[in-house]
């Protein structure tokens, strides 16, 4: 990894090259996750799943892509054409942006400090950048819901806005636990701190674990996954905001969901599970990060295929009555521990 880093000295070129690698990695994950999820879900439900196209059915996403590209591109007559066509393009863009501040690899430097590598853009305001993108995520969903001019999509868009604005607060607060504990605002700073002092999930007794769990759940809510997939709710709202979309535009929404979930898993790992830190981290490069994030990714879909969905009002009660007070207490507890010097 370090040889690769040394090859490109110029910071702009460096960012471009790493960005190219990270983008391709995430696109590949997003593309083939649909095949993996269908196989995984099939196993959970005692079925076989797609197994015809290619070995073990691994080429199924490509077949799906060809099928989707052939579909007619329908825009409803009364739809708001500009917003309708703009909406599917944005979610993938926003989901991929979050990965820019995550260090994918790292190693111990000569001075015994942890050096982060493979970061596209090591922003000082890493957490804030991620939260800003998460906050913008409601826009495409809402735009799709409004522009389709359909009662189901409108209801779904309204739910998405309500959910997005509510769950952003505990998401921010639980990420703040990591910021307060480490005293760093950049993701790479948080990862370095964890490599040197211990992963936050263990290093902060109880609080770290609860904060990790809540951050993970909030990310599910931001990504509109079960148990928080109210905006999609196929049994009540048909398919939520995606009802009127066909072909590749529909595909883009699905693709963005996989990418978003994976980036959320990457973020949870970087904030609470030590990022790319692990035994022999110098040798294995990004493998540790991908392994940890992969495990979280699997558990997200495990939850998805075995759990139920909250009702819209239960979701709001859960957020405002329980999650926000708990996360506020977590931040206060962490701040107390830091000021007493227990960390």
């Amino acid at each position: 990894m370090s040889q690769l880093e040394a090859l490109v000295e110029d910071p702009w070129l460096h960012g471009l090259v790493i960005g190219f690698l990270v983008l391709n990695l995430l696109m590949a994950v997003g593309g083939f996750a649909s095949w993996w999820e269908r196989r995984f879900a099939a196993r959970i439900q005692n079925r076989i799943g797609p197994n015809i196209v290619g070995p073990l059915g691994v080429l199924q996403p490509i077949a799906d892509l060809i099928k989707m590209a052939q579909k007619e591109d329908i825009v409803p007559r009364d739809a708001d054409r500009v917003l309708f066509n703009l909406a599917p393009a944005l979610p993938t863009f926003l989901a991929l942006g979050g990965a820019a501040v995550i260090p994918f690899a790292g190693s111990w430097g000569e001075d015994g400090r942890w050096q982060n590598q493979l970061v596209v853009a090591d922003l000082d305001i890493g957490i804030l950048w991620v939260m800003a993108l998460a906050g913008l995520m409601v826009f495409p969903v809402w735009m799709a819901g409004w522009a389709s001019n359909n009662k189901y999509t409108l209801l779904a868009g309204m739910r998405a806005v309500a959910q997005g604005i509510s769950y952003e607060i505990p998401l921010l607060l639980s990420a703040l636990v990591a910021v307060v504990a480490t005293g760093e605002l950049s993701i790479s700073g948080i990862v370095s701190w964890q490599a040197e002092h211990g992963w936050l999930i263990w290093r902060l007794p109880v609080l770290g674990f609860v904060a990790f769990l809540l951050f993970f759940l909030m990310s599910l809510a931001e990504a509109n996954r079960i148990p928080f997939d109210i905006p999609e709710a196929e049994s009540e709202l048909v398919a939520g905001v995606m009802v009127e979309y066909t072909g590749l535009k529909f595909g883009l929404f699905l693709f963005a969901e996989y990418v978003h979930t994976f980036v959320a898993a990457l973020l949870a790992v970087a904030l609470f599970l030590g990022g790319a830190h692990g035994p022999f981290a110098e040798r294995v490069g990004p493998l540790w990060l991908l392994l940890k994030a992969g495990l979280l990714f699997v558990s997200i879909y495990w939850i998805r295929w075995s759990w139920y969905r909250f009702r819209a009002d239960q979701l709001m009660v859960l957020c405002w009555h329980y999650l926000i007070p708990i996360t506020v207490l977590l931040v206060m507890g962490t701040a107390t521990m830091v000021s007493l010097g227990w960390l």
Partner: peptide, 25 residues
């Protein structure tokens, strides 16, 4: 002023505009 920029997006675009959209709906 990257910090201000981040806060600008989180608070105004992510918060206030979302509330406006909710009001519109």
């Amino acid at each position: 002023a990257p910090f201000l920029a981040g806060i600008q997006i989180v608070l105004y675009t992510g918060g206030v505009i979302t509330l406006m959209l909710f009001g519109v709906m």
